[in-house]
């Protein structure tokens, strides 16, 4: 007897493709948020599949803090060229120059929080009515409460206590003028699913995810890359370590892990054995227990 069942990765893929096609059908002007990290790479790969043989019908939107690892930008530019997509960059530096936001001060200064203003300004400037993101519910507990189609009011804010119920595969993207939606096609994927999918689909990812030698220092138990954007405190010492990044974000808030994993298979084994979550290396989440929820309410990714 033939079994008409599909694997869990095929089911997650089918779900994400369905969601992306709903975005195209329900919104006039959507953008796909692209950071150069693995999750947004997977979402753009899924978008290619969803609309093949046509091109991705959304521009890719990068909110650039200016504090990038050069590897991320190199990857971004070659990837955009390869898939023939349009790239729009929203620059945090510009928001600072225009006086829209003020740079944080101190040792843990980061432009992570400032991104929200740049993101909302860019959404307004291009009149996007939907921004597709690569957030996953398993990443963080505030995100576990997020909908696939997540409503944002005219100030770009999320109201977690008053979300629309989301049933079956029916997504309600109706909104008033000036409001927009955030849509998360890979809500149901875990970190492991992402890596398995990258392995299975042979998806290219930035070299930062693989083991390499890098000058780094330790702060609050997290290994940070030594970059021009980071100021050392007394007692912090730069050493060359063999490491890789488990998540990729702004260079000032993304921690590294000591690792020799050089292939996707080795990364998968490492993830399988990991006893801490991937956001455990993110300084931006360590600010308080509700750090993510607070940023999300303001309009963060």
């Amino acid at each position: 007897m033939i079994s008409y069942s599909i694997t869990h990765l095929e089911e997650l893929e089918a779900e994400a493709i369905y969601v992306l096609r709903e975005v195209f059908a329900q919104f006039d002007n959507a953008a796909l948020l692209f950071s150069g990290g693995k999750d947004s790479i997977v979402v753009s790969h899924l978008a290619r599949k969803a609309f093949w043989p046509a091109r991705i019908p959304f521009p890719l939107l990068h909110i650039d803090t200016g504090h990038n690892f050069p590897e991320t930008l190199t990857f971004r530019d070659s990837y955009i060229k390869k898939i023939g997509a349009e790239l729009i960059v929203g620059s945090v530096q510009e928001s600072i120059d225009q006086g829209r936001v003020v740079e944080e001060k101190g040792y843990n200064a980061s432009r992570n929080v400032l991104q929200t203003v740049t993101l909302l300004d860019t959404i307004e400037k291009y009149k996007f009515d939907c921004a597709i993101g690569g957030a996953r519910r398993d990443e963080e507990k505030a995100r576990a409460k997020e909908r696939f189609f997540s409503h944002r009011d005219e100030f770009g804010q999320w109201d977690p206590k008053n979300q629309r119920p989301e049933l079956w595969n029916i997504f309600n993207g109706r909104k008033h003028h000036g409001e927009h939606f955030r849509v998360f096609p890979i809500s149901n994927w875990t970190e492991m699913d992402i890596w398995q999918y990258i392995y299975h689909e042979k998806i290219e990812i930035p070299s930062l995810y693989f083991s390499h030698q890098r000058k780094s220092f330790e702060r609050d138990g997290v290994i940070m890359a030594a970059t021009e954007f980071m100021q050392l405190k007394d007692g912090e010492e730069i050493k060359v370590r063999t490491l890789r990044f488990r998540t990729i974000g702004d260079a000032t808030c993304t921690g590294a892990i000591i690792s020799k994993a050089n292939t996707i298979e080795e990364i998968i084994q490492e993830v399988a054995a990991a006893r801490t979550t991937e956001r455990g290396t993110r300084a931006d989440d360590k600010r308080s227990e509700a750090a993510m929820e607070d940023r999300k309410k303001e309009g963060y990714f």
């Binding site: 963080e140 507990k141 576990a144 409460k145 206590k161 227990e289 509700a290 929820e293």
Partner: peptide, 10 residues
């Protein structure tokens, strides 16, 4: 507490 993700819930 593993599942209560929102500030109001906690």
């Amino acid at each position: 507490l593993l599942t209560d993700g929102l500030r109001a819930e906690r």
